[in-house]
Design a protein around this nucleic acid. Sequence first.
DNA 1: TTGATATTTGCATTCGAATGCAAAAATGCT
DNA 2: AGCATTTTTGCATTCGAATGCAAATATCAA
Lengths: 356, 356
Amino acid sequence: MASSQQKKKPSKSDQNVVPLIKGRRATSYDVARLAGVSQSAVSRCFKPGSSISGKMRERVMKAAKELEYQPNAIARGLITQRSNLVAVLVSGRLNLYYPEVLFKITEELAKAGLQALLFTVESEEDAESVIEQAWQYQVDAVISASHMSQAQYKVLEKRQIPVVFFNRYFSDHPNTVVYCDPSEQVHEVVKQLKTLGHQKAALITGPEDNMVSRERSRMLTQSLAEFGFDIVHEVRGDFTYESGTSALQDIKQSSSARPTVVMCINDMMAMGCMDEARFVLGWSVPEDLSIVSFDGIGMSQFASYELTTIRQPIGRMSEAAVRMITERVERPEQSHEKRVFEGAVIPGGSIARAPA
Amino acid sequence: MASSQQKKKPSKSDQNVVPLIKGRRATSYDVARLAGVSQSAVSRCFKPGSSISGKMRERVMKAAKELEYQPNAIARGLITQRSNLVAVLVSGRLNLYYPEVLFKITEELAKAGLQALLFTVESEEDAESVIEQAWQYQVDAVISASHMSQAQYKVLEKRQIPVVFFNRYFSDHPNTVVYCDPSEQVHEVVKQLKTLGHQKAALITGPEDNMVSRERSRMLTQSLAEFGFDIVHEVRGDFTYESGTSALQDIKQSSSARPTVVMCINDMMAMGCMDEARFVLGWSVPEDLSIVSFDGIGMSQFASYELTTIRQPIGRMSEAAVRMITERVERPEQSHEKRVFEGAVIPGGSIARAPA
DNA sequence: TTGATATTTGCATTCGAATGCAAAAATGCT
DNA sequence: AGCATTTTTGCATTCGAATGCAAATATCAA
């Protein structure tokens, strides 16, 4: 006992008199030694707003530069309990909406000094393990644009990890959300279709468990009813191009009357649908069949498609998502917020007067 | 002095008798206390291959489960000097090649127990700051599919951070690379075009400083010369759809003879080019104009385009990239390797017999 | 049962930066 | 100059998991 008390307790600063072997990363101690100051001084130099004198800062910075020192974000994260990492959950499926969202969010995060940790999630089972992964990495927050069950959300909530949902939310549980509400535009588009003499519509929706799909379908159904449309067919797809093509096959095969307009829950399926119509079924779009959709991703406006679609303001939504994330990280106790953006109709050339 | 020696030096295990306040994350100490074992035991339970007895593992795991304990990857990274983070550098521009690569790589990294830290890089200036960021986050490695200068690469090399280049490399400096060499396929395609009676070709290339563009142009030029083609025009684009459209405008405006085939350095520009031909200039593709390109991204095969293109085996390349990364992380001293994959011609419908 | 190994376990220390506190230095005021 | 006040600086500790080493325990052989 006594003996252990005896032996000189080595202090941190003694230890680090390692002569900076080739290849070893310089630490704040190395910089401190070179500059002839304490490690704390070095630390303070790299933390804006710390009390430090001009000439000390200068000396430290010179030494830091010489050693190519950059603070170790891992060590910092350990002590500050902030990793500056944000998990971004998107789907990796071939729906080009996700890359657009992902890149915009990443950009905004970078502006806020945060790093995107990318996770692709195709199902709620995936989400399960992704959440554990993110938790291990001590992410400061999660932005979810993909699958997540309410139970999974509650786990994150209990662990006090702020979550922002991107264009999805739980209606029976408070949560922080950026959302695009296209109901106005749906109304507008359906009205226009009516004016163009359309009467029979088909719907290509998404999986039943998907909120975006449910909401959009609901709005469509409602507006179509309001204007006295017949919904002659309704098919479920999975948001991909391929599912758009096969959905139109389904519609064609069905015994019911042929629709004059197909309303797709997203652009990818609309593109599949359009290609199937033009190149397989030999229907002209928009002369024989009008197509409308949602999202307004970049390629929906390529000349081959020029979809009439309801755009989400992805840029502003990403900006808002990151702002909300940082706010929640600063003040976790503050109340939840749901920021709703309007959609916008991109006119496009995929609709026309109904065929006779 | 003496007094400071006197006061009981608090040991780690004493300290952590904090009663796990609501919301505080459980640590290995909490688990240890609950299970009645030492912290080391807990740590060992979560490290595969450690010497631990069956019943101890069981007790620890039970406690861990109860507290929802997951090891803190940040703390682990600090001590093991391995963050398990890999920086993935891609371009965020609207070139859908990148999202495909990104998602594939992320998937492969996940399989290897690694996490993708996403960085978008549009220029070498961007790369500069991205490299510093990545260095701060102690990434174990970098996969670069975007801009990086040789000087920047050397910085990473000096810092002993393994780098794998994805479909790009420096020829005058040893580096680790996965690369797709399409020269065979270029030859094949050009030969076929010759057979189809083509004689006048136009090239749409990329920026001069871009290696992929330079290589592909070189191959094209060479093969075209070999088969006695005239290169009637050559325009630089920037890999985007839009630059494809304006490139074709340039070609049309030019005084030289009209080409019967346009060879694009990537799919996005080819799509722009095709759309411009069909919808603006009113040329039929492939009847009036054949188009070939490179990459073979998903959407190049959508029915509206069906490009004849030289595909990169992105899946296998990503797999290889991640394998090489993990190897280099394990054995940094091992020599550099360049894995070259063959391309593959996707026949498509964008080429036909040359017009008379 | 004893002693010799082999296996488990715990102790104490380590990674690198941040920070509360007290000591030291600089500044201001009379 | 002398004292009070403010600003800088350094010390020592902390975050949470991993690990070398020694102590403890289990396993085996005779």
